[in-house]
Computed example of a mutant assay.
Amino acid sequence: MVKKEPATVFGRRLRAARLRADIPQDKLGVKIGLDEGTASVRMSRYETGVHEPPFGIAVRLAQALRVPAAYFYCDDDELADVVLAWGWLSKSERKPIKALIEAKLAAKNTG
């Protein structure tokens, strides 16, 4: 059986996160509270872009996959990588990165 490629950014990101976490579609669906009988079909539809889940379900998916919910919606691959990495950092690890970004923006706005 050939898997249909995701047609949406959300679907692409969801599939990538799920595969990275090595969780089958049905198990992920059940983990976020979907009915066992429909979990696989619903997850497949989210991944292929047939349906996009409500934001509340996207948040539960993000929690289950340990990624920021914003990752699912990034249409820029580089930004998606940054959002993903940001989610893996502690608050103390984020501080110097945020300061660097703010300094770069300040310099750009004054220069």
Rank of each mutant, 00 (worst) to 15 (best):
V2Q: 10
V2G: 08
K3D: 13
K4H: 14
E5K: 15
A7S: 15
T8A: 07
G11T: 05
R12C: 11
R12H: 10
R13Q: 06
R18Q: 06
L19F: 09
D22Q: 07
I23M: 04
I23G: 00
P24S: 05
P24N: 05
Q25T: 05
D26G: 06
D26I: 06
K27P: 04
L28D: 03
L28W: 02
L28Y: 00
V30N: 01
K31R: 11
G33H: 05
L34Q: 10
D35L: 04
E36R: 09
E36W: 02
A39P: 15
R42H: 14
R42M: 14
R42Q: 15
R42G: 07
M43L: 15
S44P: 14
S44A: 13
E47W: 05
T48I: 13
T48D: 15
G49K: 07
E52S: 14
E52C: 05
P53I: 03
P53L: 01
P53Y: 02
P54Y: 06
P54S: 03
F55L: 12
V59R: 06
R60T: 06
R60W: 04
Q63E: 08
L65M: 00
L65N: 01
L65T: 00
R66Y: 03
V67M: 02
V67Q: 00
P68W: 00
P68D: 01
A70E: 05
Y73P: 14
Y73I: 06
C74A: 13
D76I: 07
D76Y: 09
D77M: 11
D77H: 10
D77S: 14
L79P: 07
L79Y: 07
L79C: 09
A80P: 14
A80C: 13
V82A: 11
A85G: 11
G87T: 08
G87N: 06
G87H: 09
W88I: 09
L89D: 10
K91H: 11
K91I: 07
E93K: 10
E93N: 10
E93F: 06
R94C: 09
K95L: 11
K95S: 08
K95Y: 08
P96M: 02
P96K: 03
P96Y: 05
I97H: 09
I97E: 07
K98S: 06
K98P: 03
L100T: 08
L100V: 03
I101C: 02
A103Y: 08
A103V: 05
A106V: 08
N109G: 08
T110I: 08
T110D: 12
G111P: 14
